[in-house]
Amino acid sequence: MEKEMNVTDNDNFDTMADQELIVLRKTISVDQKFATGPVMGKFLTALKDKRILAIQCPECGRLQSPPREMCAICRVRNREWVEIGPRGEMRMMEYCYYSSPDPLTGESRETPYGAIGILLDGCQKEEVFWHLLRPEHLEMVEMGIVMGDRVTRGTRLRPVWAQERSGSIDDIKYFEIDE
């Protein structure tokens, strides 16, 4: 599919015909200590108790989960918390065939996998929650679609919690069909 250009065939690169070109290969790593802050921290702590929290904008009322300090639309600080889900309806799926690396670990992800948007119970419109689908269920789910008045319902999903939970995204292993 991809036609690779041959460097030596190109008129623009005419000076290096006889020279060995050396490429230095380095893995660069600087350890980081990411703060969660009080807002993300409260959300992550709740995951340990198998609860999913959203933060609510005091002006427009929209829910955000994972939560953020401010509502970007209203430019005000979010203060109120609401528990959402943990069950919901699939609204979006990225069916990923491309094996991309996880930049936090450097490891390639196993393919195929489904990165999904779930409208957790208690949420509406664009308030979807981003996580992964149980790989065995990739071919068995439908995504719900809203186009103006046209609404189709997506597959009901529930979280599968990790045995050991530390307050991280990995506390939810993935979402699976809720039947």
């Binding site: 990411f34 069916y95 491309y98 690396p101 990165a115 992964l132």
Partner: peptide, 26 residues
């Protein structure tokens, strides 16, 4: 690594685990 580099824009506490660079079929 371009896709790794773009994925690095995602929040390290959440979306970095989920995003695959600029690839999306939305």
């Amino acid at each position: 690594h371009t896709t790794g580099g773009i994925t690095n824009m995602a929040d390290p506490l959440w979306a970095r685990k989920l995003q695959s660079g600029a690839l999306t079929d939305s």
